[in-house]
């Protein structure tokens, strides 16, 4: 009896998580792809994040916070991949190309590609703050929670990131 109740509770919880997955999977992969070099890695990071949340689902008391939890897991995963990729890149003779760069370039235009390239050249925290603010449209408080830093730091990172981005885009190619 008790066992059955537990199974049912688990299934209900799983349903909640599956719904969250269906609704936010694409936007989270896109967020990760803005921070990372290629879509494959972004997908991988997002799947891993959902797997972690799946395991921790029983401990997540507030379903309202579930999305914030998954988002943090994606950002943490992306950050750790970025560090790894930076090390790999340093030992690569040719600069890495975005796996979808040809197609993406054709679709989003030369200018968009320049902006994305400039964004990816920024320090990790600045990159994260700008992506969360201007892609997901999160508030400073939400970004602070997702990244585990203070709202003041978010403001500073976003401000510096934006200034650096403007400078790069103004400079003659």
């Amino acid at each position: 009896m008790m066992m059955q109740a537990m199974v049912e509770a688990n299934e209900a919880a799983d349903e909640g998580l599956v719904a969250l997955y269906r609704e936010h999977y694409v936007s989270l992969v896109r967020l990760a792809s803005l921070l990372l070099h290629d879509v494959g890695t972004a997908e991988d990071v997002t799947q891993d994040a959902f797997a972690k949340v799946h395991l921790a689902w029983g401990r997540i008391r507030d379903p309202e916070k579930a999305l914030a939890y998954v988002r943090s897991a994606v950002l943490n995963g992306a950050r750790s991949r970025m560090r790894h990729l930076q090390v790999v890149d340093r030992h690569r003779p040719e600069p890495r190309r975005d796996t979808q760069s040809a197609e993406a370039g054709a679709l989003s235009g030369e200018e968009h590609r320049e902006v994305i390239a400039a964004l990816r050249a920024l320090p990790v925290r600045q990159r994260e703050c700008l992506a969360l603010r201007y892609y997901l449209g999160l508030s400073e408080a939400e970004i602070a929670e997702a990244l585990g830093i203070s709202a003041g730091s978010v403001k500073t990172h976003a401000h510096r990131g934006l200034a650096a981005l403007g400078k790069t885009l103004e400079a003659p190619a």
Binding site: V29, R30, L34, E43, L107, S108, H112, A131, Y135
Partner: peptide, 11 residues
């Protein structure tokens, strides 16, 4: 640019 780039990603 962010939205344009993101829209190209279709996982």
């Amino acid at each position: 640019a962010l939205h344009a780039h993101a829209s190209t990603v279709t996982p």
